[in-house]
Amino acid sequence: MLGIALKLLRDELSNYIVQNKGPADPIVADDIILHNIGAMDSEAQDLSNKLVISLVNTEEESSLKNISNITKIGSSLNYTEPAVFLNLYILVSSTLGKDLQDAYEFALHRLSLVIQFFQAKRNFTVKNSPFTSISSDINISQEIKDELRLNVELYTLTFEQINHLWGSLGGKQVPFAMYKVRVVRIHENTSIIAPPIEEIHTNEEITN
């Protein structure tokens, strides 16, 4: 579910970036990727000249935590562990092109487009996202497609948090923005069906 949620955002953002980039900007749809930005300095990965979307933290949505795990089916009770609702913290990094003279300018313009995109569209579902391939993916159930409802908001870090973040990622800081994505529902479709408790018997004798 996490990958599906981020893929939906990537697909929609990718289309917007390509449609609105500058005429000299060489970025293409395949350059907007889901990847670990911490691998930016790895020789095995070339993450230069890209927009990289990375998941950097998850948080349980506490307001949706206390949902009943019991539903009644006829005369029986269905016991199911409640779903986990997560908020995702994603980092959108605009990396520099190694051989581009205006690499930093391109990176800043792309980041501006990212902020512009999420400012104009904050709520995402499969139905209101025409550019994602998720809607036609037969490997994703219709139930998951219907449940996917994301709200994206800009999340501001302090300078101390920024230093800690990029220090933990092990890479050099590039132009970036962090977003909080609410909420992703994760659940396992397993349950136990049992008859309701109607009587309580005890072995203790009642004495007068």
Rank of each mutant, 00 (worst) to 15 (best):
I32N: 11
P130L: 02
D41G: 13
I90C: 04
L150F: 04
N203A: 13
F85D: 14
V114T: 12
L8C: 05
P82V: 07
V174E: 10
K7A: 06
N163Q: 13
L148E: 03
R110Y: 03
I134M: 02
F106V: 13
L150N: 09
H164K: 15
E198V: 15
D99K: 13
N189W: 02
D41S: 12
I186F: 02
N203E: 12
I138R: 01
K145C: 00
I17M: 03
I162F: 04
T132C: 06
E61V: 14
V181R: 12
K145V: 01
A29G: 05
P175R: 05
H35Q: 13
G97D: 02
Y104N: 06
N123P: 01
R10S: 10
D102H: 05
L154N: 04
M40I: 09
T80M: 12
T125C: 02
E188Q: 14
A24G: 07
D30N: 07
L6G: 06
T190I: 11
Q142C: 00
D99A: 08
V114C: 02
K72H: 10
P175H: 08
E12Q: 06
K50R: 13
E199Y: 11
G167A: 12
G97H: 05
Q119K: 14
S136T: 15
T125Y: 01
L51G: 07
A194L: 14
S42Y: 14
I140W: 00
S48V: 10
K50N: 13
S94M: 07
I53Q: 09
I134G: 02
L148R: 04
T95G: 02
V184E: 06
F131P: 00
L169V: 00
H164Q: 15
S136C: 00
E61L: 03
S112L: 14
E198N: 12
A24F: 04
I73W: 06
L88W: 05
Y179E: 01
I37K: 07
L55S: 05
A44E: 15
I33K: 03
P130V: 08
K172A: 08
S63T: 03
L13F: 07
E160F: 04
E204A: 12
S133D: 10
N20H: 13
S14A: 15
R182L: 13
Q116T: 13
K72V: 15
N87Q: 12
V28R: 02
I70E: 15
I67R: 11
R10I: 03
D11G: 04
G38A: 09
F85P: 03
V181W: 03
S112N: 09
L169W: 11
E160R: 10
E60T: 14
I4S: 05
T202I: 09
Q119T: 15
P130D: 00
I70N: 09
V56S: 03
I67D: 08
E204D: 11
L165Y: 08
F118G: 01
P196D: 09
E205D: 04
F106G: 05
H201L: 11
S76L: 13
V183D: 00
P23D: 13
L165H: 08
R122W: 01
I138Q: 00
S135H: 09
H35W: 08
L77R: 08
V152W: 04
N78K: 15
K65M: 14
T95L: 01
Q173M: 09
G171T: 15
S168I: 09
Y79L: 15
